[in-house]
Design a binder for these strands. Sequence first.
DNA 1: GTAGGGTTAG
Length: 774
Amino acid sequence: MRFKQLHTSSLCLLPNRTRIHAQSATPPRRNTSDFFKSPTTKSLPQPRTKKVTDSDIVKCNIAITTHMRNGQCDLALRLFNSMPRKTTVSYNTMISGYLSNGSFKLAHQLFDEMPLKDLVTCNIMISGYIKNKNLLAARQLFDEMPVKDVVSWNAILSGYAQNGLVDEARRVFHLMPEKNEISWNGILAAYVQNGRIEEARRLFESKGRWPVVSWNCLMSGYLKKKRLEEARQIFDRMPVRDAVSWNTMITCYAQIGRMEEARKLFEKSPIRDVFTWTAMVSGYIQNGQLHDARRIFDEMPEKNVISWNAMIAGYVQSKNMNLAGELFEAMPCRNVSSWNTMITGYAQSGDIARARNLFDRMPHRDCISWAAIIAGYAQNGDSEEALRMFIEMKRDGERLNRSAFTCVLSICADIAAFELGKQIHGRVVKAGYEFGCYVGNALLAMYCRCGSIDEAYNVFKRIEDKDVVSWNTIIIGYARHGFGEEALKHFESMKRACIQPDEVTMVGVLSACSHTGLVERGRYYFNSMSQDYGIVANSKHYTCMIDLLGRAGRLDDAQNLMRSMPFEPDAATWGALLGASRIHGNTLLGEKAAEMIFALEPWNSGMYVLLSNLYASSGRWVDVRKMRSKMRDTGVNKVPGYSWVEVQNNIHTFSVGDSNHAESDGIYAFLEELDLRMKRDGYVSATKLVLHDVEEEEKQHMLKCHSEKLAVAYGIMKIPSGRPVRVFKNLRVCEDCHTAIKHIAKIVGRLIILRDPNRFHHFKDGVCNCGDYW
DNA sequence: GTAGGGTTAG
């Protein structure tokens, strides 16, 4: 589509004479052929009132500019509305003012309403779109403009640069019909902002006579890369220096921790403005010299919101919320960052109530505020409130940033909210975050921990530039799901991809061997760890190995390895031995391990339960009772076991013998029916495992109503056949339930996936892929 | 005399 050509006489040398008629101001809907009407078609006659002179209008325009610069949009608007006659410049001033005050919506509204747009209007709006992260709209407007000048080209060049599209920026630079020094600086900045400092340097050296802004720009590139010496060379070579040059160099020294040199330059600098002072304050804070920072801060002749925020952030980082709070209360000019810093600080120090109070009181929230409060609830263990706030955030129309996505995905992983996780996945795709490591890894972990290893793998495949965390997550995912061979296969691919395995990788590899019973492979990898990757075995690696040997029945080897450890075994290591003793019925060794665990972690109720089970399984009811009174004496309470299953976006939680569920009767009836069919299938309930010394019939009843059985039954009833039933339990699955679920999976012909704190069990056709060792 | 594009701090 072609634009009507402008009459040459109006070619924008005097922009306010160029009349661009707007059909509709929303770029995507605009019919481009109607964008421009030739200057002879005066679509809007200018009303001429004798009394309002041009100079009156100019005076008003200047006043509007002043109001806008002072951040007083309301005053500017009142004046604007009171003007009997407005020019395009008046509109442009208002729009530009709104944009620099962050009011994109109002700017866009006025842009839509204004009768005659000119070249400057479009240039203002292009940069407005870019500032508002809508490069597409900027480009559309740019393409539709019948006339562009060097400012339009520079604006779109900068838009590409800011969005990381360096090649596009370069293309624009070469296409420009006219270049000025701002264009040259634009392409230089495109390299610098995107970390391509060598290309920036080559460009810089390829041409003489750069303005001071470009010298500063190149210097800031070295600052970002922490390449202090080269920054200093540029600084020394500069023919002219302005305040920015001094400030950038001082920041360089401050950020690298060379405060003496920063201080020297600070003294020498001919201009000390608020940037200079703030650079010193931040420098001391980054060096942990909080007192020096505060001294400079108090000396500062003028402070702005950034200076206050830097000082507050310093106190927050050093966990001094009292001083942070004092400053926050005292500061004259808070912005959204000030509030966000305080909210994050309170949330991280565990004071979620204060964090929430601030969050509720703040005048303006951005995506960082929401992410901070959501992460705060999540870190403080209140997943439910975190998710509620997430939903609230969406309702509020806030743009979801990567941090909020990552945080909520990890909550979904924790509580196994699979359906919600999938919905969030959809939004991640829309936002274009799925290929990046940061959100991609969280997505991957969510699928692993929600029990869908296949979907996890699909996400994994799509992550570009997988990092060590991506590989570790998929390896550990396969390991926990009991697919040891897949885990090891990925470990080999990881090495081929030249990603250096770390300690976490090796925990994944060894636990893959352990969950799959690959004793020799495990021993091989354990021995190769330090030789091949320089990784020194830590207690987690030893625990995996003891687990591996123990499960295989090699209890002596396990104990020998434990004795050979260069450090004292911790509770988890003893726990592996206790687990192995239970599986192989070695009560003596089990008791020894349990004793050690009680000594190390008297509060660890899980271990009391394991030992109780060990006694119970050998009929030692007296010891079981002793165990229970010991738990009472030490004040340790058995963590109540519960299981949950997600059905149509709702999470249904069950505890032992639960009858609180609305469909309780149906569930129990279904369990009765299953029980009959299981018995016909050869199932005998393992009543000896019940903790309590109760009558046989009572025991049977208790077993039947374990939380995992209730959740499995409900899942089968409600989840459409053909789909796996995914059930989650907060404690390790009980042995009898494990046997029962194997039968159930066979009888109903379903895949049942059960997550316990240790691993995933995939029940299918009467077997579990854990091989009955867990 | 008024409006638009490039460099520094959290």
